[in-house]
Design a protein around this nucleic acid. Structure first.
Lengths: 173, 173
DNA sequence: CGTTCGATGTCAGTCACTGACATCCCTCGG
DNA sequence: CCGAGGGATGTCAGTGACTGACATCGAACG
């Protein structure tokens, strides 16, 4: 259904597409659509749980002596690896999300969830509550900025390179 | 109407309160409610534009030789000053927002708007696009964490102190 | 073969939000 | 004091997101 939804959103826009339209193109009922996705926006955010889990694992797997910010960045690098080989899809999706405030809002919620997962993993490494929250926010900000740059320009550079490059700018602050 | 809405949300929760309920308690029509607020959630986010403007001005007024992150922090400090003398109201509002995912989502959008305004002001000071975005995100993260700590514990310390305290943790990263 | 369970379809209902139109009231020039 | 204009509000009807209750259907299993 995600495919059907993205096509329709790209054709006529998010608001001009009803949940029924998406369902119909996917060959199911509107009711079924809402059994798969809690709401109409969620259809564009299917992989977010996976990204959170991936980031968490990478943070816990980071060397024990790594600084909090470094561990957090390792997390978002791992999360980024999930997108790395789908530049076209990511760019297409990014354009759709940027075009609608409601979708941007949802994207922010997912990024906040990624930050929460990151902070949680950092705390499991013994990092202070406040430091964990700030390191997580910083790493996710790097991720967000790096992805935006990655999708709005042709590859290369790879997403991984964009993230490390953006992280360097952060450290320079 | 904000008062009526906050009372109702606190009594029965956000979802259990219809737009009509709020309007009725405020002595107007549902239609009038939607003329004042673009949607039901917005009723809790009235001052956000003012905060953005205040932060922008403070950043532009910061000493020309201040580092980007310092200027950005001056911005969120100024924004925080708008809340400083309303601890009870802020705490009450915070509890309501935290209790509902939709409201959290909207809060994130407002914080993102604050970050955008901050980044924009930084760019006007000659800061690079990427550096501005990262400094803005960092400052807003500090703001967010500081406010959360401020409202979930009794005053003092003041919000200003919480912000500078949180900023110190960030620098230590 | 009958049962059971998960996924799907059907239907009716609530509520957020919007456009079109009428009304009311306040202000200001005459 | 009067009438015109404009801004805020009320009324009404409609669309679409989402939900709960119930029926159906097909694969898996003993």
């Amino acid at each position: 259904m995600t495919r059907a939804a993205m096509d329709l959103f790209a054709e006529r826009g998010f608001e001009q597409t009803t949940a029924g339209d998406i369902a119909e193109r996917a060959g199911v009922t509107e009711r079924t659509f809402f059994r798969h996705f809690t709401d109409k926006r969620e259809v564009l955010f299917d992989g977010s749980k996976t990204m959170e889990a991936t980031a968490s694992e990478a943070i816990l797997a980071a060397p024990p002596d790594a600084a909090p910010l470094d561990a957090a960045l390792a997390g978002v690098l791992a999360a980024g690896a999930l997108l790395a080989d789908r530049h076209d899809h990511a760019a297409r999706r990014h354009r759709i999300v940027e075009a609608n405030p409601g979708l941007r809002e949802r994207e922010l919620l997912k990024l906040a969830a990624l930050a929460d997962a990151t902070a949680h993993a950092l705390r499991a490494r013994g990092v202070t509550e406040v430091a964990a929250a700030l390191a997580a926010h910083s790493a996710v900000a790097v991720f967000q900025v790096a992805v935006a740059r990655w999708v709005t320009a042709p590859e290369p550079p790879s997403l991984t390179d964009r993230i490390t490059e953006t992280a360097a700018v952060l450290r320079a602050l």
